[in-house]
Design a protein around this nucleic acid. Structure first.
Lengths: 333, 333
DNA sequence: TTGTACGCGTTATCAT
DNA sequence: ATGATAACGCGTACAA
């Protein structure tokens, strides 16, 4: 087993000073090609690696960022976090991924820890409604970007989100185009800015097609794992219902299975479109239509902006909307 | 905005030396109750937080661990990682979650980075078949535990895995008990120790019920998103097939939708059981039976062991098997 | 082009 | 019970 080498060891082994080694490693200052080769050779031979604790301390920079995410086992979140982490790694940053479980106290605890660890930047995914960076001690010090849920004050951050409104609008509109006369929206009981946007898109698509939104007839809130009874009731009261726009794919599959259980034929009797384009959508029967968020783009834009903020090459106050795409499958044809 | 306080500032503000402040913070050495109160008061007022870069440098310990995971958007992995991260955080450790995408080069790159960042321990989830910690520079220095996939050499690590064999055996056996005469296994084309264990469990359940395993008739390897044709073919050749044990839920739903597409009735004509108990199993139609891994237990045991190894209160060489549980739903009744 | 010396914030050792 | 100080590994201003 090898021992752990420090920059001092490298200096001694290559017969130069630590300053020179440092310069070679970081390509700073000037040095002869000869010493460069000599030093690099020793580094290679010894397998020397930078001690980041020392470097961080000296430079007051950690080459790491923190990501706050509500639930990493949610497909959309996992997907975008994964892509962000990959891009960050390729750009020399490592990532603390923190699962807040939608708990504001946890969020704060994580933020303090991340601040203490000296992260250079923060990525907040769908944070608490009242997300407030000012709870931290060095508020103006740590730059942060927000994804998915609009923060209260957008002036000191960059906001990146999908075009939830347009996605909902397109999905609902396509239900009409496929022949639906009375589509409704199936949602959960959490209120996030994305959920609000999706609801608005649904409403506007309704009115564009000559219908007024009535929450008692055009909306169902799914709160249980088996919503068969609730849906049965609603359908009995409103037999004209012939389409569902679900606020996410989990609710869409929930609705789908309930409808099948009630003997409905999909898409003949009732059509369904979900949101997020989860992998299993192609394995449901019938296959599930869904609105796909561009997680590649979201991740790329997020990393560009957080690193930009860290390097002072980007500015806050921006609000970036990423287009979405409706994926038509059997459930809405 | 507050400035950033160092231990030196706290010392000055409370009229003691930095040494005393350090002692109070870490509850080391001895100090009067009076100074303790005084110092803590200043800390509270200033919002002082430890600078971990400095602490790490001094103590040669980072209070952080790295997790290598093949694919965080896989439900099982996301779930166990999430729980591990939570427990670690509660025990004062932060976590670098690294997505290796089943790429050995990436795995190595991550390991080097983590080593450089000075992580105190490593958690390897389902790592490369040839996972070899000796590629690192300080091999004997960083303790690690392995989850899910058995490492080549188990003597210098702790291995933690579900009882895949028993899960597969129970699932297959329950198919027989539900009336199946000729169940087959649906698998993917990756070979992992867990996949091998599950296959063996399936085989043994077969022979216990008087059948010999024949890979051309008792096994189908799913490689595409739509396996309808392949399944159709196999069913035509072997009309006696009346049950599927799928190696995971993704393949199970894939098979399920194909069978429905082929006009089969589930579970009347053919019964299905999957593996991992993913959330959407209860939203498929019919609901999907599955073998549930105890991710709570896995996470807890993992953290106990890695911290144990770090603190030298645990030893390597152990192999811990976590029981699984068959969840019966409509697809196999 | 290269070397010396200092400081980053913390903990630990040795005094007092 | 408390204080002074060395040491951790690194980057850099300044000197040579």
């Amino acid at each position: 087993m090898n021992k752990k080498y420090s920059i001092k060891d490298i200096a001694e082994l290559s017969g130069v000073s630590v300053a020179t080694v440092s310069r070679v490693i970081n390509n700073n200052g000037r040095f002869s090609e000869e010493t460069r080769k000599k030093v690099l050779k020793v580094i290679k031979k010894t397998g020397y690696q930078t001690n980041f604790s020392a470097k961080n301390l000296r430079m007051n920079k950690s080459f790491s960022v923190g990501i706050l995410v509500p639930d990493i086992s949610n497909y959309f979140f996992a997907n975008v976090v994964q892509k962000i982490e990959k891009i960050l790694f390729n750009r020399g940053y490592s990532t603390f991924i923190c699962n807040t479980a939608r708990d504001e106290n946890k969020e704060l605890a994580y933020l303090k820890m991340l601040e203490s660890k000296g992260v250079d930047g923060l990525i907040i995914i769908s944070g608490a409604k009242a997300f407030d960076i000012s709870k931290l001690n060095s508020p103006n010090k740590i730059p942060f970007v927000c994804i998915d849920r609009k923060p209260k004050d957008r002036s000191n951050t960059v906001f990146i989100g999908s075009d939830h409104y347009q996605g909902a609008f397109d999905a609902t509109n396509s239900l009409f185009q496929a022949g639906c006369k009375f589509p409704i929206i199936a949602s959960h009981n959490r209120s996030s800015s994305s959920a609000v946007d999706r609801l608005n898109g649904f409403k506007d698509a309704l009115s564009k097609n000559g219908l007024d939104f009535d929450s008692s007839r055009n909306q169902i809130v799914i709160t249980t794992n088996d919503s068969t009874n609730a849906i049965d009731l609603l359908l009995k009261e409103n037999p004209q219902i012939d389409g569902f726009f679900a606020i996410n794919d989990s609710i869409a599959t929930n609705v789908l299975s309930s409808l099948l259980r009630l003997g409905k034929e999909i898409p003949k009797d009732i059509k369904i479109i979900g949101f997020d384009d989860e992998p299993q959508d192609i394995h449901s029967y019938p296959t599930l239509s869904s609105v796909k968020q561009d997680t590649d783009k979201i991740a790329q834009v997020t990393v560009d902006n957080i690193i930009g903020l860290i390097d002072h090459t980007a500015i806050t106050g921006e609000s970036i909307t990423i287009p979405v795409k409706l994926i038509q499958r059997d459930s809405s044809l």
